[in-house]
């Protein structure tokens, strides 16, 4: 585990922003951290970076305990803030050089590493100062600086939220590429982003982690479920089908049925025909993460 967060509680005055948060992040994975705006995602990240003190609990990164203020654990971390701010008069190259000097990177490695990263984030051709950059370019430069010292953990705070679809796709591709050399921990309130690249997902809601699992495991929870609508009302259909053993429930004028195998599916179709139920539509239950989230929030 590259990160372990144990019983972290954070209070701002009387307001409890984080309550007994426990989280473990395995190496070389992409860990999605979802939750609504204001759920406390940024607060937890700042605590992990020693930028804010925790009220109680401990955080360990790569075996090093995080302390507030000066923290040694930051040597293992790359951080991309939600709105990265740079010195506007520098070019990307000059800014990364400053970062390299600050992280005490050996002189002979610097040039090559900087070019490698500018290539990765697609800024190698850009020679203008940072003040002319768009949001997306700043975000990409932000990832480049975060990866500079080959951190064991890359923390990205809402890296895609403020970007257009093209910019978002670029960031997600870069994060996916970064997985080969580091662990990515990124927060987002856009569930489809998390769904696209994450191995594991945790959800923070009102200061507590309400679920945390592998994405595939989460998907299985609702897998093999199908959404049916009929020409008759869904209640009527359910009453006609009530004697069947399948797991069935109603959701928004549609019948959700769990059909785990092809046989079951065939069987269910026959039952429908036998009961003269005409299908209007049928599709697999696909809104995976969003569904999980909505269910948990109920």
């Amino acid at each position: 585990m590259v990160v372990s967060i144990n019983n972290v509680t954070k209070r701002f005055g009387a307001k409890e922003v984080l309550q007994n948060v426990n989280l473990a992040i395995p190496e070389n994975s992409i860990f999605g951290f979802v939750g609504a705006n204001g759920a406390g995602k940024t607060t937890l990240m700042k605590c992990m970076l020693g930028l804010l003190p925790v009220t109680s609990g401990t955080i360990t990164i790569a075996g090093e305990a995080v302390t507030f203020g000066q923290t040694k654990s930051n040597a293992h971390v790359g951080y991309l803030p939600d709105v990265p701010e740079f010195y506007p008069y520098y070019t990307a190259q000059e800014y990364l050089k400053l970062c390299a000097v600050i992280t005490n990177m050996p002189k002979r490695e610097r040039k090559q590493r900087i070019e490698e990263l500018l290539e990765l984030v697609g800024l190698i051709q850009t020679k203008s100062p940072i003040r002319t950059y768009s949001r997306g370019m700043k975000q990409r430069l932000g990832i480049a600086q975060a990866l500079l010292n080959r951190p064991k953990l890359l923390i990205c705070d809402e890296p895609t939220s403020a970007l257009d679809p093209v910019g978002r796709a670029q960031i997600l591709t870069i994060l996916q590429a970064a997985k080969s050399e580091t662990t990515v921990f990124f927060s987002t309130h856009i569930l489809s982003d998390a769904e696209q690249i994450c191995d594991r997902v945790a959800m923070l809601h009102e200061g507590t982690i309400i679920f945390e699992d592998e994405l595939t495991a989460l998907q299985q929870q609702v897998d093999h479920q199908f959404v049916f609508t009929f020409t008759t009302s869904v209640n009527q259909a359910l009453s006609q089908l009530s004697e069947l053993e399948h797991h069935m429930y109603i959701e928004e004028d549609a019948l959700i049925v769990q059909l785990s195998s092809e046989n079951e599916r065939l069987q269910f179709m026959r039952e429908l025909t036998d009961r003269n139920l005409v299908i209007q539509s049928m599709h697999p239950h696909t809104k995976l993460l969003e569904q999980v989230v909505l269910e948990v929030l109920k």
Binding site: V83, E85, C99, L148
Partner: peptide
């Protein structure tokens, strides 16, 4: 502006 945050988390 928050320009120091990145440098501080780089170990400055």
């Amino acid at each position: 502006k928050g320009t120091l945050v990145i440098l501080l988390t780089k170990g400055l």
